[in-house]
Design a protein around this nucleic acid. Structure first.
Lengths: 246, 246
DNA sequence: GTCTATACCACGATAGAC
DNA sequence: GTCTATCGTGGTATAGAC
């Protein structure tokens, strides 16, 4: 955050330094314990700042959390959109294949996961958890900061998959973001359910995202469900018959 | 809990009634606000009980939360396993098709979503959120209460998809549970990102799960990723090829 | 402008009276 | 089995020092 030249608005001691230290300490502690379980007293102690400094610089614990998310999330989503724009430019007016679009969504997350200086995989876990958090302020924040990226990718997918009804596409994008978020948020304890040993690929987020890409693509391009089938008769009816509807 | 006959251990006033009222009130409030954001004072006030009653009957707020989850989750997972057992019996030794296995996972959730008396869709949302919660006690609880069901379904999927390497299957089951949990946990605010109007299918959890089924099946049966090593070598391959990660 | 000390109320938990 | 009182900790607000 601080370059070689100290901002004019900063005091002799580097006023913004306190704000930056709080941000870094908050990020580390939020990643480790989550939002609710992290106290402002722990954050300010780790940052070597006074308790009231959080309220002065950020306004509240909630706004501090938003600042922590915003610092990494906005650049990542901008990178996603930039990658997609590049793909569309290379395609010269023709639709970008769906697998390339999926890659453009995943790659920036992959890059972030590999960069410890920007929080690395731990930040993605924090982000994934936030995506399922019921707190209204978090939901509002994510709506705003994801909306543009999602809208952009929905257009790209719509062109790549012209036979997929628009509403179905909306749902499947919803499922994709869910699988992506939960995978990133996944904890070792949950992986234990699936008997994935940490000594295997558990700690390798790159392999994780590489495995996730074909899964998401397969789901996105799956045959449509027959929504007119009567539910509940599992014993007699075919489970999920393929074939187009609507 | 209470049948026509009052338990001997209950007092004249129905001692267990207080416990049951707390459980119901806690479920409703946890569903609405989540675990951390719900106070014991709010729960006991809604249940017409004293604050200390929670600690007496359940031991702690955490154990109360586990009791709320356990009451609905265990029967649902038992129903899943029972459905799968029935399918395997009908198949008479032959592998159950993957789409049927997916149905057996989803149907009990569907039934629960349609039953307001058991919490309905709101309980599934609570469950979905818990699946991504970083709190250690929640992770431990879910590991225990999901393990048997997951192991059982992993076996079924392994037989239905013999060409899918075991480790890949583990990962894809992980993705499936993520997409399922997140979808169930999805809030109206997050759906707004995807421009899914409540007047459409937003409020219809049945249609939601029926749309989810083909998505999960498509992901599960998707072609393998190119991980720069032969898929057959994945079992016991020592090296982790690309990227600096951990 | 930046930072500190301090007070305030709500929270989860628990000991002890009834 | 239930209740009151109380403890330590949480987020927040503010007056005032530098």
């Amino acid at each position: 955050m601080r370059g070689a030249v100290v901002s004019i608005s900063e005091g002799r001691n580097g006023a913004a330094a306190t704000k930056a230290r709080i941000l870094d300490a908050a990020e580390a502690l939020f990643m480790e314990h989550g939002f609710e379980a992290t106290s402002l007293r722990a954050i300010t102690a780790a940052a070597g700042a006074n308790l009231a400094a959080v309220n002065y610089h950020f306004g509240s614990k909630e706004e501090l959390f938003e600042a922590v998310l915003k610092r990494r999330l906005d650049p990542m989503n901008q990178r996603r959109v930039a990658l997609l724009t590049q793909l569309e430019h290379d395609a010269a007016g023709r639709p970008v294949p769906a697998d390339r679009v999926v890659s453009a969504m995943i790659m920036p997350a992959l890059e972030l996961a590999r960069d410890p200086a920007r929080g690395g995989a731990n930040f993605l876990r924090l982000l994934g958890r936030a995506y399922a958090d019921p707190a209204p302020f978090i939901r509002r924040f994510l709506s705003v900061h994801y909306a543009e990226m999602i809208a952009r990718f929905k257009e790209a997918f719509a062109r790549a998959l012209p036979n997929l009804p628009r509403r179905e596409l909306s749902w499947r994008l919803h499922f994709i973001m869910g699988a992506l978020s939960y995978t990133l948020a996944g904890t070792d304890a949950l992986k234990l359910i699936h008997e994935i040993a940490p000594s295997d690929d558990g700690g390798n987020d790159e392999l994780l995202l590489r495995r996730l890409a074909p899964f998401l693509l397969g789901g996105l391009t799956a045959p449509l469900a027959d929504l007119d089938e009567a539910p509940g008769d599992l014993d007699g009816a075919p489970g999920i018959p393929p074939g187009p509807s609507r």
